[in-house]
């Protein structure tokens, strides 16, 4: 279905020298810096699969999506999707895909939402019966009814994102690319969007590739994840495997009544932990303890901290993706 082979993408960035002299100079000779955004990535995706892309800011996720959607041409390597090469004959290729860039919108800013759908209906030649069926489906899973008559510029971010998702799906694409579809949304809308994505995937066997910074997205949606760091693929497999492989890390955030109490926490000596299994970060307001919950249980860790320090506040969290990425990369 989707085959990506040894794909790299380099950007040329013009180096601007500072000052007037620099500007004049750059008129005549331009210096370029080569930025390697994606570096020799290979993977395949089967039909109906949901694949999650994770990685820190600037890792190259969006660049990969842009290559897969035919907006950018890879510097090296091959991409084949549905038997087509995205950046060749782009107009024909994009008929079969749907795309959402969470930070942008494909809706018409000044027009009521319905107008955008009418235009899309014509562009993709969706017939009336199919159109109605799709709209009913969207109304059911994304609850568009309340705002389809309002101009898009008056929609809230959550409403807009739901509408964008619907817009990308109107023509029942075979592949759906979602670049940060949950960015900036509250918990309720996030879970609403996740549900919709799941339903879309089940109803139409749509192959979905999404990027996110939210571990919850990955946990609810993707059996498989790909992690990239600085353009390089560093993990391709299931989330469960990754967690098992790299330890189940947990994070305890606490603030102390007396900041010097931090010296009382001696995990190495008192709890026999390796330096790989825990980490303490502290700043003025709070202290973060990250530890491997397979080596020491959460309750043991909590009671250790409680007995050795006077805490003002405490909370236990899952480690965020960036932390896992960082640990994996080590």
């Amino acid at each position: 279905m989707i085959k990506v082979q040894n794909v790299s993408k380099e950007f040329k960035k013009v180096v601007k020298e500072s000052g007037l002299k620099g500007s004049v100079k750059s008129l005549f000779s331009r210096k370029y810096d080569i930025v390697k955004a994606v570096n020799d990535i290979s993977f395949t995706v089967a039909k109906g699969e949901i694949l999650g892309f994770i990685g820190a800011n600037g890792a190259g996720k969006s660049t990969t999506i842009k290559m897969l959607t035919g907006i950018l041409t890879p510097t090296k390597g091959e991409i084949e999707i549905n038997g087509q090469i995205p950046y060749k004959n782009r107009k024909k290729y994009v008929r079969e895909i749907g795309v959402v860039f969470g930070q942008r919108t494909q809706l018409w800013w000044d027009l009521p939402l319905t107008e955008t759908f009418t235009v899309l209906k014509e562009i993709y030649q969706v017939d009336d019966a199919r159109f109605k069926k799709q709209m009913d489906f969207f109304n059911e899973v994304l609850e568009l009814k309340d705002f389809v008559k309002s101009p898009v510029r008056t929609l809230s971010l959550g409403q807009r994102m739901r509408a964008d998702l619907a817009a990308s799906m109107l023509h029942s694409p075979k592949v759906l690319f979602l670049d940060e579809p949950t960015i900036g949304l509250d918990v309720v809308v996030k879970s609403n969007i996740r549900e919709a994505i799941t339903k879309i995937n089940q109803e139409e066997q749509t192959t979905i590739i999404l990027t996110t910074h939210d571990l919850k997205d990955i946990e609810t949606l993707c059996k498989r994840i790909i992690m990239i760091d600085k353009g390089t693929l560093i993990y391709d497999g299931s989330l469960l495997d990754m967690k098992n492989k790299f330890g189940k890390f947990r994070e305890i955030n606490l603030s102390l009544q007396n900041n010097s109490d931090i010296n009382m926490l001696r995990f190495k000596e008192d709890l026999n932990l390796n330096s790989d299994d825990f980490q303490i970060k502290s700043n003025k307001e709070k202290i973060t303890v990250i530890f491997n919950s397979q080596k020491i249980g959460v309750s043991d860790m909590l009671s250790y901290i409680l007995t050795h320090t006077n805490i003002a506040d405490i909370s236990v969290n899952d480690v965020n993706i960036e932390e896992i990425v960082r640990r994996m990369y080590k």
Partner: peptide
Amino acid sequence: DGSIIMRMIKPVN
């Protein structure tokens, strides 16, 4: 502002 990519993902001239 880069929104031209939103036009590029549509099958239109």
